[in-house]
Design a protein around this nucleic acid. Structure first.
Lengths: 221, 221
DNA sequence: TAGATTGTTAATCGATTAACAATC
DNA sequence: TAGATTGTTAATCGATTAACAATC
């Protein structure tokens, strides 16, 4: 219905991530009532080159107007379409610990059409517990719920020691994408995707940047 | 004292991230009592090529033994040194909402020498509140605490609308690295580093992967 | 010695940028 | 028309991989 001759799933993940950032910025601009925006303006906001912005957007079609720029309203539509954000995505959450609870309350997912439909935990003490609108379910009800909601995405927020077994169970249920918060590498078969959010690794990266640029040779103290 | 002729701060961030993953794997191997490991074994675990592993590790010195492999014990030492994990890193946390609380309880940071030394929030209702060992402080005490702990790193876990002002305050205090959880692009001066953990973006990336590989053209329902 | 594995080179691959004709 | 800005090409830059001599 929309985006007839899309340019396929050929976008690199680096590009896809930038598209997410463009989308967010464009939504803010539209909310401000801005009518047009140039590649140079978008680029400056994100701290990248204008050529990069044009190349990324040109991959989605002829969306810009020479001499004018881009219309946020039009671009938002195409970006949502490209990123698959026009529909709703049911997501199952595995884990009911501190991080999982924070993710349940995070508003950012819902804004993008991602809805956590149920929460699971292996700990018998947590089963049946109410967290806002959710009730923690036992792991043996995973397959049934994934099927009922036709969920393709899962968030794994369990300890590293349990993560691989959880991933195996998710794959067995037909889950196709896993957002993994456990600090471990998950092995999944081809056709299943894992995106890792590795908090300690990110902090290590930051520490490396600071330590190697500051000129200070070691952390203080 | 350690790592005399280090090969400098020339490592790309992609490499640094892989070093973090090698380190974690090597620690697990050492705990299992494994004496040697080859680049091929490390590569298989991470799903990358053995040439990549050797190239990454060769950048840190001649650490491998032809015909033998690498000794986890030795490599761990060098990796910790390279990543700046030999000392302790005091970190200030801005925000005392759900995500911030989850981060306070996250054990993974402490294992790597990152310690959250204090927590700040702008909401007067939260000031003085006790969260485990921490007491939520007012933002006007930021400069004093950053100086007292000689903190160089900060974690920003506040709403997007407040994030830039928080970043500005952190920069003014001399913070050199910011781990940003707010879904917004932070502008900071040269010499200050930002690493973004953008949860919605990561989920969008996953949705893109699933949608473009499954053959399904749109999310279910 | 034979077998295993490294470190490194050269080749490949992919992503970014500069530049500019085409367009409005 | 003059000015602004796109889409795209070619050049550049950087990261990954294959291959293999050197090493133990």
């Amino acid at each position: 219905m929309s985006g007839e001759h899309e340019k396929g799933g050929r976008l690199s993940l680096l590009t896809v991530n930038r598209l997410s950032l463009y989308l967010r910025r464009l939504e803010a601009l539209e909310a401000e009532g801005i009518e047009t925006v140039s590649s140079a303006q978008l680029a400056q906001h994100l701290g990248i080159t204008d050529a990069q912005v044009r190349k990324d957007l040109a991959a989605l079609g002829h969306l810009g107007y020479p001499g004018v720029g881009y219309y946020p309203r039009e671009l938002i539509e195409v970006l949502r379409d490209t990123l698959g954000l026009q529909g709703e995505w049911p997501v199952v959450l595995i884990g009911a610990g501190n991080l999982a609870r924070a993710l349940l309350k995070y508003r950012g997912f819902g804004q993008r059409g991602f809805h956590i439909v149920c929460v699971f935990d292996a700990d018998p003490a947590k089963i049946g517990e109410k967290i806002d609108q959710w009730t923690v379910l036992a792991m043996d009800r995973l397959a049934e719920q994934v099927a009922a909601y036709r969920a393709q995405l899962a968030i794994v927020a369990v300890p590293a020691s349990a993560a691989q077994a959880v991933a195996d169970a998710l794959v067995a249920c037909g889950i196709k994408g896993i957002l993994n918060f456990a600090p471990t590498v998950l092995r999944v078969p081809a056709g299943v995707h894992v995106v890792a959010v590795d908090l300690a690794m990110q902090l290590e990266q930051l520490a490396y940047l600071v330590r190697t640029q500051t000129g200070t040779d070691s952390p203080p103290d």
